Amino acid sequence: MSSHSERNDARRGKNQRPGGRFPRRTEAVSDDWLWGWHAVAAALANPRRAQPRKLLATAERAREIERRFGPLPGLEVCDNHAIAQRLPQGAVHQGVAMQVEALESVELSDFAAEPGAVLVMLDQVTDPQNVGAILRSAAAFGARGLILQDRHAPKLAGALAKAAVGAVDAVPTAHVVNLSRALEALADAGWRAVGLDGSAEADLEDVLDGSPTVLVLGSEGEGLRRLVAEHCDALARIPMPGEFESLNVSAAAAVALYAASKIRP
């Protein structure tokens, strides 16, 4: 009797679909959905976010959401299966998913060139898991922002947001048309660009100097494109005394961000 009452209490005032019926899973749902507790909680806490179009949660998660954020319009209480039906196959949603508007991009001018400040720029890094992991490292080491190219970047939602564990809403992201021109604008604003290149002669720690720094990383297959590399003030490699020749781009970003964090004034 008590469990039945608790379920009714959890559903009181919420919008439910008759019979718990949800549309069948579609293939293109991940472009505007967030799932996983950390990704959804960070989005709900972000004042730059618009109200979610849909917010699905199990009864337990719904109670947790209301404790942290108060009553939210459109919160639908449903079971795990109903949530999974709205998401890509195999999505680990942890009892909560949210359909959202795209997070608004920030401008390059929003990044203040202060001593010790670090930005991350990605040159055609397109794998959502890698970009999500890089965002997570950027948040962990206090990077001021991420810079992506419009045409060659995954959406900041779906599997990327799940991998970022809330960092999509913690690290401001700028989308630009041309990375080379963006580096020129950042240089005019006082930023120094350091490109990571495995064939560079200088070690990363020898190149970093504590000035406002843009760490520029290229794709795993091709590395930095020529024009992007030419717009960097310095190229540097991560020294690896082991037998492996290279790191995954997300691992390289984490190492570079750690190195930059050690020399901040």
Rank of each mutant, 00 (worst) to 15 (best):
G198K: 13
S250T: 12
T213Y: 06
R225W: 12
L215P: 06
R226C: 09
L196Y: 05
V214I: 13
L160H: 03
A202S: 07
L160E: 02
G221M: 12
L235H: 09
E205R: 04
A251S: 15
A157Q: 00
E201I: 11
S199C: 13
L156W: 01
G195C: 12
L224F: 09
G195A: 13
I238V: 13
A161Y: 00
D203I: 03
D203T: 09
S246G: 07
V165T: 11
H231W: 09
L224G: 06
A185M: 11
E205P: 01
L227T: 09
G242P: 06
K162M: 05
L215C: 13
P172L: 08
R192A: 03
R192G: 05
A170N: 01
S199R: 12
C232N: 11
G190Y: 12
L227I: 13
G223D: 14
L235P: 10
A163S: 14
P239R: 12
A167H: 05
E230I: 10
H175Q: 14
D169G: 05
E222A: 15
T173R: 06
V177M: 15
T173A: 12
C232L: 07
L183F: 04
A236H: 02
L215S: 14
L160D: 01
L235G: 09
S211I: 08
G242N: 13
R225I: 08
D203W: 10
G242I: 07
G210K: 03
L183Y: 00
R192D: 00
V176M: 07
L179T: 00
E205D: 08
V177N: 15
A170K: 09
N178D: 15
L186F: 00
L217M: 14
V176F: 05
G195S: 13
S250I: 03
E245N: 15
V216G: 02
E201N: 14
D197M: 06
S246P: 03
T173E: 05
L215M: 12
D233R: 08
A185P: 09
N248T: 11
V228R: 07
R192M: 04
S246Y: 08
